[in-house]
């Protein structure tokens, strides 16, 4: 297939943009799952999710600087150790933070109207951003460049580096693991039941608040993993990146049908690909407009997203 693409420069170029879009899209998907799971269970647009992701990347950066592993020259063993530690500590940190926020800020508002909770989430997002600002300042910070840029498919006219492989290698198993968790475990069953009808779930003996906390924990952990992957892939982090990436991820969640996990993955990939192809063929300046244009058009024809269930809103 690669040889085929190499024949025609335009085709090879298209293939390259497709690769970039899919890699970036899988990153968005990982963040989008956090949005979609929380929404599915308590119908909250968690505006703070993107900023949680940002704080996660700052922690990962702190781990790297703490260990002094800042360039690829540190040696393979150190790099593996550092990334391993990041992949354990960051999700743990994000999950704990997310659960704490839920316990003290969202849980007391469980019976309040939606808007009240959304505004609280905006408040949390502001606070997270301010913490990020104090933590690393307003300047973008270089994230250690730990993974080689060697092209794995040299000679095909395309470029797929170790970094791209790392993104796919971490995001895809994570998503598979999550699907297994939601589909086949007791917790997953309890989550689905709560999402469907919290009252009925409670009557069935499900500890709803615990299930919600678990959802926040899983969503936070995914944001943590995504933040490590993002740092290693994009190589620069700053306190405002949560907003931009959160917006894309949130859009991905809605595009796929908010509350629907495969939908979030699909939405993330669509947004990644559309955004990058837009940058390449329409110019970078139109890519955001294109993403949201497509979102609106899709919602006009499928008002509940690509994979969303066609339910009527309760009246």
């Amino acid at each position: 297939m690669f040889e085929l693409l190499a024949i025609h420069p335009a085709a090879s170029e298209f293939g390259q943009f497709l690769i970039l879009g899919l890699v970036l899209g899988s990153l968005y998907a990982l963040i989008a799952i956090g949005y979609t799971m929380v929404y599915g269970i308590i119908e909250l647009i968690n505006f703070a999710h993107g900023d949680l992701f940002m704080l996660g990347s700052f922690l990962a950066l702190g781990i790297a600087s703490g260990l002094g592993v800042l360039t690829a020259e540190a040696g393979v063993a150190w790099i593996v150790l550092t990334i391993g530690l990041m992949l354990v500590a960051t999700p743990l940190f994000c999950a704990t933070l997310n659960v704490t926020i839920d316990r003290f800020i969202y849980r007391p508002l469980r019976k309040s109207p939606k808007l009240t909770v959304i505004v609280s989430a905006i408040g949390v997002s502001f606070i997270f951003m301010n913490i990020g600002l104090f933590w690393r300042g307003a300047t973008p910070v270089k994230f250690p460049d730990l993974i080689a840029d060697t092209n794995l498919i040299d000679g095909t006219g395309l470029r797929f580096t170790w970094k791209d492989a790392m993104v796919v290698g971490i995001t895809v198993p994570t998503m598979i693991g999550l699907t297994v968790l939601v589909k086949f475990t007791t917790l997953g069953k309890a989550m689905r039941a709560t999402a469907q009808n919290p009252h009925a779930a409670q009557l069935m003996g499900i500890h709803v608040n615990r299930v919600i906390a678990a959802t926040f924990a899983i969503g936070g952990a995914l944001a943590g993993i995504a933040s490590v992957v993002y740092g290693l892939y994009i190589k620069s982090v700053d306190y405002q990146m949560g907003f931009q990436n959160g917006l894309y991820a949130f859009t991905a969640a809605v595009l796929g049908g908010v509350g629907n996990i495969p939908g979030a993955v699909l939405g993330g990939l669509v947004i990644g690909v559309v955004g990058e192809l837009g940058k390449a063929y329409l110019g970078a300046k139109w890519s955001e407009a294109l993403i949201f244009g497509i979102l609106i058009i899709i919602l006009l024809f499928r008002p509940t997203g690509l994979l969303g269930a066609r339910t009527r809103e309760k009246v």
Partner: peptide
């Protein structure tokens, strides 16, 4: 022209 807020110019 690039868009500075995109924070990622890989495709460009």
């Amino acid at each position: 022209s690039i868009v500075a807020t995109q924070k990622n110019f890989k495709t460009v």
